[in-house]
């Protein structure tokens, strides 16, 4: 699994030194079950449960972790790899029918395209 994550993301999680800058900066950290530093640690240790975290679906790909990582790891690409492995097996979180109508009728079109691309299989 680690090789698969590396292949899809092009990033080497093993150089992460666990400083926590990503967690301190993360947009979604308050709603994540495991903040980005711990996600990185799970990848380093080869813990398969990393694929089942809520965190990977809360990430809004804002690139603040990527911008600040002192080891130069593109953490957003690692989070994407974890999503992509799920999505390619049909595991998704954003279901069109479940989006509240008050949001669906109001959001700009770009929100629908980006949301479905990131969170739907």
């Amino acid at each position: 699994m680690i090789e698969r994550i590396k292949e899809i993301s092009g990033q080497n999680a093993s150089i992460c030194m666990q400083c926590g800058t990503c967690s301190a900066s993360c947009t979604g950290r308050d709603l994540m079950d495991y903040p980005p530093r711990q996600v990185m640690r799970m990848i380093q240790l080869g813990n398969q449960n990393v694929l089942n975290l809520k965190s990977i679906w809360i990430c809004s790909t804002c690139f603040i972790c990527t911008a600040r990582c002192p080891r130069g790891i593109d953490i957003a690409r690692l989070m994407e790899a974890l999503r992509v492995i799920n999505l390619r097996k049909g595991r998704e979180v954003l279901i069109a029918e479940k989006i509240p109508l008050e949001i669906l009728t109001r959001v700009p079109q770009m929100a629908l395209t980006s949301g479905f691309r990131k969170l739907s299989a």
């Binding site: 679906w57 809004s60 979180v93 949001i103 959001v107 980006s114 949301g115």
Partner: peptide
């Protein structure tokens, strides 16, 4: 900082 972006569809509380 990020406004939460497309997560408005998935988790409005964020």
């Amino acid at each position: 900082t990020c406004c939460g972006s497309y997560q408005v569809l998935n988790d409005m509380s964020l």
